[in-house]
């Protein structure tokens, strides 16, 4: 009887502790996501990346920290590209690719991971658009198309595809006119996503999409 009580007591305590650990993970991720939503500028992204790295270190079986680390690496790469530091872009894109590979070992393939794969390809284009565009642009398009097919409610494939097209020169098949259908589609999907309770599941991108939609519309008007 004594032993049985002890057993239950330990069981109860460990459930509590797992629960606490789980809550801690959720809370930590939630904290990072809040920061992410408020973020503008590379310094904040570095801090977010560091926090995610610590969460990933504490939760080696969770795919979301690896996924967000991949996404964060790409956001940092985007910043490095705007600074014109192609060496740093290369390092960050490869780092993002490594996190994506790590995330894939922790969960079954899903729309968000496929979408991140496309974003990694897009990162390779940032490294050297003239040299890499021909190879990676089709790969990115395909990845986004597959990601959209895997989950039709996911707005990120359409948003990133819109980004890819919007910033591709017109003579390479890009431009505002061709980007608009993707961005408009993403805008609708983002509106639906805002209704859903996503928790710590990926739900980033709506403000950027709105910004791109405005830019694309303005580009088109100034052309006419």
């Amino acid at each position: 009887m004594k032993n049985l009580s002890l057993f239950f007591c330990i069981l109860f305590c460990s459930i509590l502790s797992i629960q606490a650990q789980g809550d801690r993970f959720e809370a930590a991720m939630q904290g990072v996501l809040v920061k992410m939503e408020a973020t503008e500028g590379p310094v904040a992204w570095e801090e977010i990346s560091n926090q995610l790295e610590r969460i990933a270190s504490a939760e080696p079986d969770q795919w979301l920290p690896q996924y967000y680390l991949g996404y964060t690496s790409l956001q940092l790469a985007l910043g490095a590209m705007q600074e014109g530091n192609s060496g740093k872009v290369t390092e960050l894109v490869k780092r993002g690719e490594a996190y994506l590979a790590q995330a894939r070992t922790l969960t079954t393939d899903n729309s968000e991971l496929k979408c991140l794969e496309g974003y990694v390809y897009q990162g390779y284009i940032w490294i050297d658009p003239m040299a890499n565009g021909g190879e990676y642009s089709p790969l990115a398009h395909q990845a986004y198309a597959t990601a959209a097919a895997m989950d039709e409610t996911n707005p990120r494939p359409a948003m990133l595809r819109g980004m890819l097209v919007l910033f591709t020169p017109e003579f390479f098949g890009g431009g505002a006119e061709k980007a608009l259908p993707f961005l408009n589609n993403a805008e609708v999907l983002f509106a639906n996503e805002a209704q859903a309770e996503k928790g710590i599941a990926p739900h980033w991108g709506a403000p950027t999409n709105t910004w791109m939609l405005q830019k694309a519309t303005a580009d088109l008007e100034s052309k006419e």
């Binding site: 930590a28 570095e46 801090e47 610590r54 969460i55 504490a58 080696p60």
Partner: peptide, 14 residues
């Protein structure tokens, strides 16, 4: 902006 942390825990700082 370097990341300093105790491996396997949530504890750390930049």
């Amino acid at each position: 902006g370097a990341n300093v942390f105790l491996t396997g825990t949530y504890d750390g700082a930049s």
